[in-house]
Design a protein around this nucleic acid. Structure first.
Length: 982
RNA sequence: GCAGGGGUUCCCGAGUGGUCAAAGGGGGCGGACUCAAGAUCCGCUGUCAAGCGCUUCGCAGGUUCGAAUCCUGCCCCCUGCACCA
C-alpha cells in the first residue's frame, strides 16, 4: 500500500515531540483543552478510515485539491492558510454527502535540495526525505483530513517512472522534440530555463541575469494546443486575473505574413503584421538586428560597419539598457530595398533595435501613418509618412502629426476594390489578394513557445533516452523503466556541472537497438513536469502498472478537480502546463477530461507588520523596528508585508498551534479574510479568536447542561438556527468561508447568549440547537466539533455523518413572526437608548421611566391594507388618494393631515427613504399584516426592557390612550413606536 | 503602453439603486463584576441645534423622485505582460 516502496524511512503517525500546551487556563471543570482533544480526535479519525475514499458511482464526487508543497522544511503560514481552506471545504462536502477525494503529496524534486545537499555534503534524497517527514507531521498536527493512502512524492521512483512513461508516450505522439535552439541559460543555476521561467530577463529562482545560448534541448510541443488552451479558458472558473495572464501569455494574434521581395535579389522578407489593412501605407521595412538577412544584405558593403555597431550593441544589451532604449529607437539603413507586393513600391530596408527576433518573423512592415512607433522612426530618419486609413467614412484622413492607430476606412490604396473598406473587411480583402498572388498568407501568431523541459541538473526525473553513435537518440524501452537516479553520489560545495553526467554507472549503457555501447541522456526534467499530472495520479495513486487507471481518473476528474486552491504565483507556469498535459493525455487516450481544474481559488497572502520607510518606499527587516531608516535616517513606520524570511516577519505555525491549538489557528486563518483576500497577521486577532473559541466552547457546555423543561425562547432560537443553517450552508458551498465561519462561530454564539438573556430555552430545544450548531463548527474547527458532538451523546463521529444541507422551514410564517418580534424588541431598545441622552438633557434629576406609545389603530389598519394592495400591484400614484378618501379615519378633519402624512410614509416615502411597504422585510410584513399586538408584547417583556435600559419603569400604551409624552404620539408608526423618557 | 483588480468610517473588511450613518471584527472609550489585574458581560465609538436634521464610501461631473452602489472623465494603489508589429 505504501507509496514509498523504495525508501522506507516513513515515520510514525505522530510528531515525535509531544508538546505541552501552554494556553491560559480558564476556570471550572469544562475547560477547553485543545491539546488533549485534538490529539484524541486525530487518532480516532485515522482509525475510522473516514477520509479514505474510493470510486463509488452511486455518489456525487467532490475532488478537493491544494497545490502540493515543495518540502523545504517546516510548514509556513501560507501552507496553513492554503490547507485550512481546503480542509474546511473537504469536510463540508463530506458532511453534505459527497464522496470526497482529498489527497496530499510533495513536489519534491528541485534545486534547493540539491544545493542543501552540497552544503552539508550529503545527497538530495536524504535532505528531501527529512523535510517531507517534518512537513508531514506539521500537516497531521493541523488535523487535515487527507486520504493518506494516496500520499506521493514526485522524487520517488514509484512516481517518476510514470513521468518517464508519459514522456515516451508523448514521444510516440510526436509531442517531444529534441532540437538545437537559442535557449535561456542561467549561470548561477547551471541550467537552461523555460520561457515561462524568465522574468525581465532574469531567472525566476535566483534572479540572476539570463543569457542566450545555442544548445540541443528537449521540448514539448505545447504550441500545438495553443488554440485549445486559449479558447477553453472561457469555460472554466478561474479568477479573472489568472485568465488574463494566461491569455496574455498565449498571446494569439490574427494577421498575415506578407512577402516583400528584395530588389535585385532572390530573397524575400516575410513580415508578420496584425494590420494587413495598412499595407498601402508601408514606407519601409525593419528587421531585427539578429535576422539572418541583415548579415547577407550588408556584408561587404559600405553599410556593414554601422550595422555591426547596432547589432553588437543589441547583443550585449542588459536589462537596464533595454529599459533605457525605450526612449531611444535606433535603426540603420541596410542599403537595399524591398518591393511592396501590392503596390510594387520599393521601400528601404532597415535594421531596428526595437524589433524582437523571436516574435512573429523578426521582420516588421513599417506603416508610419498608422503606428506611432513607426511614425517616430520615420520622422527621425526622414522617411515618408503616408496615410491610408480615414477615421471617418468617406473623408480624407485628418492631419494630426500623430499616427492614427485605430481601425478605419481605407483610402489612397491606388488599387481598385480597396478604398472604402473598413476594419476586418479591409484586412480580409488584403489577405485574399495577397494569397491569390502568393505574396502572403493569413496567419495566426502566438506568443506561446514550446516548453523547453530539459535541465542540466541532478535532482529531477531522468529523461529516458539513450544516445547511440550508430542509431542516434533513441527511447529507453518501456520495460527498462524507471531510469533511476543513482544514490551513490556525493555532493560537495563548490561542485559545478551535473553529477549525473560524470556518474559512470548511470551514463554507460547499451543501445537497445544494436546492443553496442551507448550513453544515457543526463538531462533531467523541469520539475514543473512532475506537477503537471499529479492530480491525475492522485485519482489512482497506488497503481503500479500504469500512471493511473482510466476509470478512476474519469470518475474523480469528471468536470475537473472541483476545487483547486493555491497561490497566484502559478497563474502561468504550473496552471498552463497542467492544462496542456491533461489535454495531451486525453489525446493519448488515458482520460476523457480536458480541463484539469473546474474551479480555481487563489488564496491571498498572509502579511505581517514590517518596518517601512515611506520616503524610500522600502520595507526593512523586523530587526530595524524602532530604528531610523538605514538609507535616509528618518524614523521607520510600519506596513503590512508578505511574510518572508528576508524580512523576518514570519510567524511560526508550530508555536501558534502549541499556544492556542490547531482549531484556533484554523479559525483565525478562515475568519481573518475570505480565501482570495490578503490577510494580516495580528497577535491580538489570534488572541481574540482563541477567546471566541472559548466562548463557543462554554456556550456549548451550557447547552449540554441545560435541563429546564420549558423555555421562553425555544421558538425563537430554533427559528434562528434554521435560517442560520441555510445561510451558512450557502456560504460554504460558495467557498465564502469567512461568511460561513462568521455565522457558525460568531452569530450562533450571540444567538445562544441572547436566548439565555431573554429567558433561556428548554433542554429539548438546547439539544436541537446544538445538533444544528455543532456540525456547523465542524469544517473550520473539527476537533472542537467532534468533542462536543460526542459529549452530546452522538455515537457516530461527525466525520462519518451526512446531513441535509437545507433545513426545510415547515412554517415560514411562524418563523417570520417569531424572528420579527424579537427583532422588534431589539429595535425598540436601541431606539430608546439613542434618545436617552437627549432626554437626560431635558429632564432634571435621574430618569425613572421610559414611555412607549404604539401606533394608533387606524395606522395599523391602513398599513396592513397598503401591504395587501401592494402585493396586488396596486398603483398608488394613480389611485392612492381616491382610496384614502374612502377610509373612515380620513373623514375626521382634525386628523386628516396626519393621515395624509402617514399614508405618504407608508406607500411613497419621503426624502431619501422609500415607503415602508417597500422596505419592510418578510418579518415586518408578517407582523403588520397579522395585527401584531405591540402593547401586549412590550408589556410582557417589560422586565427585560427595564433591565436592558437600566430603568425602573416601562410604560406602554397605544397613542391616544395615555399622556402624549414629548409629543411622540403623532410620529408613531406600526413597528416604530414613539419613545420618550421621564 | 496593454491587460486584470482595487480605493468604504481610527484600522481590517462586508456592502452592485431605496430596509445605509453603512454588517462583522480589531482598536479606543465608558459601565458591571473584582481588593486589584486578567478574563467575562453590557453599552458607546461621523457631526450637531438630537431631527423621518446635516455631512461622509478616491476626485469631479452626470442619470434618477432617490446613488457607496449605475454612467462619463480624472487621480492614486496593487498584480501581470511589455519595443509583440
Amino acid at each position: 500500500m505504501s507509496c514509498f516502496a523504495v525508501h522506507s524511512i516513513r515515520p510514525l503517525n505522530w510528531p515525535s515531540v509531544h508538546r505541552r500546551c501552554t494556553y491560559v487556563r480558564g476556570k471550572g471543570m469544562n475547560d477547553y483543552n485543545p491539546a488533549t482533544i485534538e490529539e484524541k480526535w486525530q487518532e480516532k479519525w485515522t482509525k475510522s478510515g473516514a477520509f479514505e475514499s474510493d470510486v463509488d458511482q452511486s455518489k456525487p464526487k467532490f475532488y478537493c485539491l491544494e497545490m502540493f508543497p515543495y518540502p523545504s522544511g517546516k510548514m509556513h503560514m501560507g501552507h496553513v492558510r492554503n490547507y485550512s481552506i481546503g480542509d474546511s471545504m473537504a469536510r463540508y462536502r463530506r458532511l453534505a454527502g459527497f464522496n470526497v477525494l482529498y489527497p496530499m503529496g510533495y513536489d519534491s524534486f528541485g534545486m534547493p535540495a540539491e544545493n542543501a545537499a552540497k552544503k552539508i555534503g550529503g545527497h538530495p534524497h536524504n535532505v528531501t526525505w527529512s523535510n517531507i517527514e517534518s512537513i508531514r507531521s506539521d500537516l497531521k498536527r493541523m488535523g487535515f483530513s487527507y486520504d493518506w493512502r494516496r500520499e506521493l512524492a514526485t522524487s520517488d521512483s514509484t512516481y517518476y517512472r510514470w513521468n518517464q512513461w508519459i514522456f515516451l508516450k508523448f514521444h510516440e505522439m510526436g509531442l517531444v522534440e529534441r532540437r538545437t535552439a537559442p535557449v535561456n541559460w542561467c549561470d548561477s543555476c547551471d541550467t537552461v530555463l523555460a520561457n515561462e521561467q524568465v522574468k525581465n530577463n532574469r531567472c525566476w529562482r535566483c534572479a540572476d541575469e539570463v543569457r542566450q545560448k545555442d544548445m540541443a534541448q528537449w521540448f514539448l510541443k505545447m504550441t500545438e494546443y495553443a488554440d485549445e488552451l486559449l479558447d477553453e479558458l472561457e469555460n472554466i472558473e478561474f479568477p479573472e486575473n489568472v485568465k488574463a495572464m494566461q491569455r496574455n501569455w498565449i498571446g494569439r494574434s490574427h494577421g498575415a505574413d506578407i512577402h516583400f521581395p528584395i530588389v535585385g535579389g532572390h530573397d524575400v522578407i516575410k513580415a508578420f503584421t496584425t494590420r494587413p489593412d495598412t499595407i498601402f501605407g508601408v514606407t519601409f521595412v525593419t528587421l531585427a538586428p539578429e535576422h539572418p538577412l541583415c548579415e547577407q544584405l550588408v556584408s561587404g558593403t559600405e553599410f556593414e560597419s554601422q550595422y555591426r555597431d547596432l547589432a553588437d550593441e543589441c547583443a550585449k544589451m542588459s536589462e537596464f539598457d533595454r529599459i533605457n532604449m525605450l526612449r531611444d529607437k535606433k535603426g540603420v539603413f541596410l542599403g537595399r530595398y524591398a518591393t511592396n507586393p501590392l503596390t510594387g513600391d520599393e521601400v528601404p530596408i532597415y535594421a531596428g533595435n526595437f524589433v524582437v527576433a523571436s516574435y512573429g518573423t523578426g521582420a516588421v512592415m513599417a506603416v508610419p501613418g498608422h503606428d506611432q512607433r513607426d511614425h517616430d522612426f520615420a520622422k527621425k530618419y526622414d522617411i515618408p509618412i503616408v496615410q491610408v486609413l480615414s477615421e471617418e467614412e468617406g473623408k480624407d484622413p485628418k492631419q494630426t502629426g500623430r499616427a492614427f492607430e485605430g481601425l478605419g476606412w481605407m483610402v489612397n490604396s491606388g488599387l481598385d476594390g480597396f478604398d472604402g473598406l473598413h476594419g476586418n473587411d479591409a484586412k480580409a480583402a488584403v489577405i485574399k489578394t495577397l494569397e491569390s498572388k502568393s505574396m502572403g498568407t493569413g496567419t495566426i501568431q502566438y506568443r506561446l513557445k514550446d516548453w523547453l523541459l530539459s535541465r542540466q541538473r541532478f535532482w529531477g526525473t531522468p529523461i529516458p533516452f539513450i544516445h547511440c553513435e550508430k542509431c542516434g537518440v533513441i527511447p529507453t524501452p518501456i520495460a527498462d523503466l524507471p531510469v533511476e537516479l543513482p544514490l551513490d553520489v556525493v555532493f560537495t560545495e563548490g561542485q559545478s556541472g551535473n553529477p549525473l553526467a560524470s556518474h559512470e554507472g548511470f551514463v554507460n549503457t547499451t543501445c537497445p537497438n544494436c546492443n553496442s555501447a551507448a550513453k544515457r541522456e543526463t538531462d533531467t526534467m523541469d520539475t514543473f513536469y512532475d506537477s503537471s499530472w499529479y492530480f491525475l495520479r492522485f485519482s489512482d495513486a497506488m497503481n503500479d502498472s500504469a500512471p493511473f487507471d482510466k476509470i478512476n481518473a474519469d470518475y474523480w476528474m469528471n468536470g475537473g478537480v472541483d476545487l483547486y486552491i493555491g497561490g497566484i504565483e502559478h497563474a502561468v507556469m504550473h496552471l498552463l502546463y497542467a492544462r496542456f498535459f491533461t489535454k495531451a493525455l486525453r489525446d493519448a487516450g488515458l482520460n476523457d477530461v480536458s480541463e484539469p481544474f473546474s474551479r480555481l481559488v487563489c488564496q491571498g497572502m498572509v502579511n505581517a507588520p514590517t518596518p517601512f520607510c515611506a520616503d524610500c518606499n522600502v520595507e526593512h527587516h523586523v530587526e530595524l523596528e524602532g530604528a531610523p531608516c538605514p538609507s535616509c535616517g528618518k524614523s521607520l513606520g510600519t506596513r503590512s508585508a508578505k511574510m518572508s524570511k528576508s524580512l523576518g516577519n514570519t510567524v511560526s505555525p508550530e508555536i501558534m498551534i502549541e499556544k492556542y491549538g490547531a482549531d484556533t489557528v484554523r479559525l483565525f486563518i478562515l475568519f481573518g479574510a475570505n480565501p482570495e483576500a490578503g490577510m494580516d497577521w495580528s497577535d491580538s486577532a489570534i488572541e481574540s479568536n482563541f477567546r471566541q473559541i472559548r466562548n463557543v466552547h462554554s456556550a456549548l457546555i451550557q447547552g449540554i447542561e441545560t435541563q429546564s423543561n420549558s423555555g421562553l425562547m425555544d421558538e425563537w432560537l430554533l427559528a434562528r438556527s434554521r435560517a442560520s443553517w441555510n445561510n451558512w450552508s450557502q456560504s460554504m458551498a460558495d467557498v465564502s468561508l469567512r461568511d460561513g465561519v462568521m455565522i457558525s462561530h460568531f452569530e450562533m454564539v450571540s444567538d445562544w447568549q441572547w436566548a439565555q438573556r431573554r429567558g433561556g430555552v428548554s433542554q429539548t430545544t438546547a439539544r436541537e440547537y446544538l445538533n444544528t450548531w455543532i456540525p456547523m463548527l465542524y469544517p473550520a474547527t473539527p476537533h472542537l466539533a467532534e468533542e462536543m458532538w460526542s459529549s452530546l451523546g452522538n455515537q457516530t463521529m461527525l466525520c462519518q455523518t451526512v446531513l441535509e444541507m437545507e433545513h426545510t422551514i415547515s412554517d415560514n410564517q411562524q418563523d417570520s413572526r417569531v424572528l420579527g418580534q424579537e427583532e422588534y424588541l431589539r429595535r425598540v431598545i436601541d431606539r430608546a437608548r439613542s434618545v436617552r441622552e437627549l432626554a437626560e438633557r431635558h429632564t432634571q434629576g435621574p430618569l425613572s421611566a421610559v414611555i412607549i406609545q404604539t401606533a394608533h389603530d387606524w395606522k395599523k389598519d391602513l398599513a396592513s391594507q397598503a401591504i395587501r394592495m401592494h402585493q396586488d400591484n396596486f398603483d398608488f400614484k394613480e389611485g392612492g388618494n381616491k382610496f384614502l378618501q374612502t377610509q373612515q379615519c380620513f373623514q375626521n378633519e382634525e386628523t386628516k393631515g396626519d393621515v395624509m402624512q402617514f399614508w405618504r410614509a407608508i406607500v411613497v416615502g419621503q426624502k431619501k427613504r422609500r415607503g415602508r411597504i417597500h422596505t419592510w422585510g418578510e418579518q415586518e410584513i408578517t407582523l403588520v399584516s397579522n395585527d401584531f399586538d405591540e402593547v401586549q408584547f412590550i408589556a410582557s417583556n417589560a422586565n427585560f426592557i427595564s433591565e436592558a435600559l437600566g430603568i425602573e419603569n416601562v410604560e406602554v400604551y397605544q397613542a391616544g390612550k395615555g399622556e402624549d409624552v414629548a409629543g411622540k404620539a403623532r410620529s408613531s408608526l406600526p413597528l416604530e413606536p414613539g419613545i420618550a423618557w421621564r
